[in-house]
Structures are given as C-alpha cells and as structure tokens.
Nucleic acid binder design. Structure first.
Length: 98
DNA sequence: CCCCTGACAGGCG
DNA sequence: ACGCCTGCCAGGG
C-alpha cells in the first residue's frame, strides 16, 4: 500500500487551499489534478486530515455534499456567495478549473 | 490475510 | 432524476 505519498497529500491540500472564495471543486477534479487514481483518496484525506483547509469548497460531482455535511457545507458556501439551487450547487457556475 | 467501511465517480435500469 | 452496482485506494477490526 502506501501507493500514495506525503507529496500527493500535500498537493491535494494545496489544491484545496488554492480554491478561491466563491468557487468550488469536485473530488474528481482534485484527484485528477493531484495525480491520484481515485477520487476516494481525496475523501479519505479530507476525512483523516482535519486541517484548516476550506474543505467546504470540495463537493461531489453531483453538486451535493455528503448527507452529514450537506447542511453545514451549504451554509458555509452560502456565506461565501455560492448559492445552491434546491440543495444542489450549480457546478457549471462555480466549478473551479485547475 | 480477509472483510467492511468511507468527505467518490461513472454506468445502467 | 433516483437508486443500485462496480471500480477505485487506504485504514481498521
């Protein structure tokens, strides 16, 4: 295992931190930009590594955060100017390109 | 070492 | 549009 290096984790955190206010990115985008083969790894990093990262700017490809965080996410994003339509973020509008 | 779980994604019915 | 299944990688029991 350990197919993932600390550098990869650093990259992921850097990418998440680089997401400007008012923008969002999907797990898949980050995984791809970080050179990871699976978007799930990104989720794993976010879950384990509770850093000062703006994790709320990371959403799923469906535009809907995980159920347990959805409420919090939407609220935080809302305060940043990212509005959700029917509990779903409009990726086409806020998706950040790396 | 096997099995389950998990901040996911894409395909299929 | 929604739910289920499969592929993916890593960690914990």
């Amino acid at each position: 295992m350990a197919a993932i290096t600390d550098e990869q984790v650093e990259t992921v955190r850097a990418l998440v931190a680089s997401i400007p206010t008012g923008a969002v990115a999907t797990y898949g985008d980050i995984a791809d930009a970080a050179g990871l083969s699976s978007a799930r790894i990104v989720g794993w990093i976010m879950r384990t590594d509770s850093s000062d990262l703006p994790w709320h700017r990371v959403i799923t490809a469906s535009g809907k955060p995980a159920p347990h965080l959805a409420t919090r996410q939407l609220e935080l994003l809302r305060s940043e100017g990212v509005l959700a339509a029917d509990g779903r973020i409009v990726l086409r509008e806020y998706r950040h390109s790396f």
